[in-house]
Simulated assay, not measured.
Amino acid sequence: MPTPERTSTEQVVAEARRILEQRGADGLSMQAVAAAVGVKAPSLYKRVASRDDLLRLALEATALELGDRLDRALAGAPADARGALAAVADATRAYAAEVPVAFGLLFGALPEAARPRPEVLASASTAVLALGRRLAGPDHELAAARTITAWMTGFVGMQRAGAFRLGGDVEEAWRFGVDALGAALEARRT
């Protein structure tokens, strides 16, 4: 059956993202996506090269959507760098709660063919890079952005996994971490 004109790459990617969240990475298949868009699996090969390509496209869409959210969070954030960090961190955490499977995969180990392209990741990283520059200065922009990303994704991943088992208030720990990270990065500003 030929791919109907009503089926687009955008629809294929949207269904892949939906399936990914509902069934996990193991549940994402060409067959499942084809059924969701109303075509036979071989027809999908006109749109995507492989299952890894499908996963890459889904994760790229996730990265760009996250980047848009973070851009908006930064634009609406307080003028001070630590307030901006809190806004971006909170937006990241909220987004991770909306799409936990794709978020986890985006920051996890993937086959080379499923990894988002560097230019997509660069486009999605503008807010975090700008935040790194504001906090730590232009000489440390990339290192600061990586530190921010690593802390946020690590905390979110541990929370999602139920790894905070020693009691205490997780929200308080989040705020403490954001504040401590902001202070540490500002101390590195040159």
Rank of each mutant, 00 (worst) to 15 (best):
K46R: 13
V39D: 05
V33Y: 07
R47V: 01
R82D: 03
A58E: 10
A32T: 12
Q22A: 15
V37S: 07
D68L: 12
A14P: 02
L66P: 00
L54K: 04
R18M: 02
A36L: 08
A35W: 04
A32M: 14
V48N: 05
L66Y: 12
A77D: 07
R18A: 13
L20K: 05
L44I: 00
R51T: 07
G38C: 07
A58S: 15
A84D: 03
L64K: 13
L85D: 03
D26V: 10
R23H: 15
G76A: 13
G67Y: 15
V39H: 02
A14G: 12
Q31A: 13
P78E: 12
L55F: 01
A61P: 00
A35Q: 14
L70S: 01
K40G: 04
L54Q: 06
L20S: 06
L85M: 09
Q22D: 15
K46C: 00
V33L: 10
A79G: 07
A86T: 10
L57Q: 15
M30I: 15
V39T: 14
I19Q: 10
L64M: 12
E65R: 15
L59I: 08
A63P: 00
A81C: 04
A61W: 05
G24D: 14
E15V: 04
K40Y: 06
L20W: 12
R17W: 12
A61N: 04
V37T: 07
V39E: 04
L44R: 07
L64E: 13
A41D: 08
L44D: 01
A16R: 11
L70Y: 04
A75S: 14
L66Q: 09
E65H: 14
E60P: 01
L57C: 02
E60K: 08
L54D: 01
A63V: 05
L28H: 09
I19G: 01
V33R: 10
K40C: 00
K40L: 03
A16N: 08
D52H: 06
A34E: 09
G38P: 08
G83P: 02
A61L: 06
R17P: 00
A84L: 01
A32C: 05
A58G: 03
K46E: 10
A86K: 03
D68W: 12
A63C: 05
G83C: 08
R82N: 02
G27A: 14
L85Y: 04
L44Q: 07
A41G: 00
A41E: 13
S50W: 05
A84S: 02
S50R: 06
A77T: 11
V37K: 09
A86S: 03
A86Q: 09
